[in-house]
Design a binder for these strands. Structure first.
Lengths: 338, 338
DNA sequence: CTGTTAGCGCATTCAT
DNA sequence: ATGAATGCGCTAACAG
């Protein structure tokens, strides 16, 4: 076997050119005589040359990496986004570094610092808790995109759907199906100054009721934690209050699944006795019993858009983020009320 | 604002030492006079110095990164592993690079090449399709750990559970519950030379039947694709054959969910008419109707172990991989047959 | 268009 | 124990 790593110099020698010429053709930069270019390329392939990224980075100041901070690996919606990011980056020369903030500000901060230390060329936050001020400071120094979180002062760097509209539409659908007493399972309404997604869904719910001339009843709104278990507890809470309802709008599928189980335990049939809708269209939503009516966020597409936008940002090009449209997925968990 | 990046030289100057001394205390290497050490540390914190990783890497040859090749972001089991890897790496100085092979050998190969080009200090494959020979070649050059895939010639680098045993136990449980006609939904049995996880579960199923003195009936075994939809199709196939059965063992939860839906559509009750078990204990398994009996693989722990093992490998220490034990999770989807 | 040269910031011998 | 010197491999002015 050969031993010494082959460098740009070996290529230069073999191709009878200077190292800068080699560097030029490799960097696809300005004009190089076609014959020399080919000689270089030939040598590169002959010697199976691999540029040393360390040296490249040191000399250029670019790491060709981007940092991705996620919050909960394993959540379908966020995973979809990650998938999209990976996809969007695949054809580029950037590689993603990952960290999981686990919805813990300290951990998230640490992850951010790590990425900054590694001189990532850009950052994508998928969700997140860091204070608005911190994010702005970061954005000042490093290209930054936020997915699944909206910060007003960074609006141009945020990718999201219109959660208010989605909540409104979902509630309207239930109203159309004849439901008048619609319970809502929501979750913590805000991190820091940021209004959370679920808060906006809640607002849409409230508005839809108002527009339908239905009086809002706070007894029908209970707060969970986005986890399945909390959906079950929420149902228990609703039952305890003895305030009748014919439909439940859970702010995410997970809680809807939990709610479904609690109803099942009490012998309440879905959708015969109570209709149920969720939010996110997780993979399993189509395979629960009964299949769940929900809202799909185009998470993969959003992730891809995030990657694309970030690369534009890095290149100093305009970003122009579209708002993504959510889609109502009608399945069998809702019955028409006569 | 200040402008120029501060370097090790600034520290040296401020602390009245040479750059090599600074480097020494930062690298925690051999003896440095305690007072000088403190002066350096002081200067570092005063100036908020951040080492330039590019220069470090170029000089040391280490990237302090590890490459993680996954296959399907969004699958609960694999995500658990990724979570574990992230966790295990969190306290180290290594940062993970991610790529998604999407069960496509070409893409996987490309991801591998990218990581190699980036001079990762180690690699973790979560699943994977690459030929055994390729993997061995890689292992020769770069520390390598495989999770969720077993390659005989690389046995010492593989982390997995005993899928045969798990399949055996699960089947035995059904037998104990009085079932004699147990259908099995499996999936493609092997990539390349490697026997897949599901194949081993299948082997466990076969053996358990044999040990119970029950004749194996190939009609009761159908092959899916690990996706939910295929579980539903598998049930259709079973029904078509009119070969009666009282229980279904699906090789993973996803297919079990699909099967569940198909049964529901036909008005077949679970577990009253047919018992159902899955494999993986996905998050939602506990919240389906009825909650699903399944097998839990300690995915997070396996991921952590992978990270730990890899770091040992990198340090040239012995790896000593334990085999992880799976756990039977009994829930309500199985009825006792009288 | 092309070659020469000077760093990029740090780790690491090698002396002292 | 510590400082000086060398080089890691490449990019980017700078000349020609």
């Amino acid at each position: 076997m050969s031993s010494r790593k082959i460098t740009i110099e070996d290529i230069a020698q073999k191709a009878n050119v200077s190292i800068s010429t080699v560097s030029r053709v490799l960097r696809k930069s300005s004009g190089v005589a076609i014959d020399k270019r080919e000689a270089v390329l030939q040598a590169v392939s002959d010697l199976d040359y691999r540029p040393n990224v360390f040296a490249q980075s040191l000399a250029s100041g670019q790491s060709m990496t981007i940092g991705v901070v996620t919050q909960n690996f394993g959540s379908p919606f966020y995973d979809g986004i990650l998938q999209g990011i990976l996809l969007g980056l695949e054809r580029s020369d950037y590689s993603p570094l990952f960290a999981d903030g686990r919805w813990n500000e300290t951990i998230e901060q640490h992850a951010l610092q790590t990425f900054l230390d590694r001189r990532v060329d850009g950052l994508i936050f998928v969700g997140g808790q860091l204070p608005e001020a911190d994010m702005m400071a970061v954005a000042q120094k490093t290209p930054l995109i936020l997915v699944g979180r909206k910060i007003d002062s960074l609006a141009e760097n945020c990718i999201h759907i219109d959660n208010f509209q989605a909540g409104y539409n979902l509630t309207s659908y239930l109203l159309d199906m004849g439901h008048r007493n619609i319970a809502h399972i929501t979750a913590h309404m805000h991190y820091q100054n940021t209004v959370s997604d679920v808060a906006q869904r809640y607002a849409g719910y409230v508005q839809a009721l108002a527009d339908a001339g239905i009086e809002f009843d706070p007894q029908l709104v209970v707060q969970g934690t986005l986890l399945q278990q909390s959906g079950a507890l929420a149902v228990e809470m609703l039952m305890m209050q003895k305030r009748p309802f014919s439909a439940i709008f859970a702010a995410n599928d997970q809680m809807a699944f939990g709610a479904r189980l609690a109803l099942y335990r009490r012998g309440i049939r879905v959708p015969d006795d109570v209709s149920l809708v969720g939010f996110d269209d997780e993979m399993t939503a189509a395979y629960t019993i009964p299949p769940l009516t929900t809202v799909r966020q185009p998470s993969v597409e959003m992730g891809q858009a995030a990657a694309a936008a970030l690369m534009n940002l890095i290149d100093g090009q305009p970003v122009n983020l579209q708002t993504f449209k959510s889609q109502l997925i009608v399945r069998e968990s809702v019955a028409r009320l006569r």
